[in-house]
Amino acid sequence: MRERKPMVVFTFHTTAAAMAMEKLCKARGLPGRLGPTPRSVTSDCGIAWLAPASDREVLENAPGAPEFAGVYEREL
């Protein structure tokens, strides 16, 4: 079993916005990765940005970030 950790989950309105997030984070050395949106957040499919919950603030306030559909914290 994968060990569960507190994570922040950023969701997006489009796949394009998720890709913009990945590009931004890679360029600025920000933490996280793309992954499936947890079903506990929404059953609407889609790509989410997943990062340790402790990094929520830096990611949420990253200049130039795409619009988030939602920001959630989950044990993943």
Binding site: F12, H13, T14, T15, A16, A17, S43, D44, C45, G46, I47
Partner: peptide, 16 residues
């Protein structure tokens, strides 16, 4: 679209 799959309508955000 791969996103917002339970919406009846086409998602509103571009480019989707």
């Amino acid at each position: 679209t791969g996103v917002q799959s339970h919406l009846r309508a086409q998602p509103e955000a571009y480019p989707t």
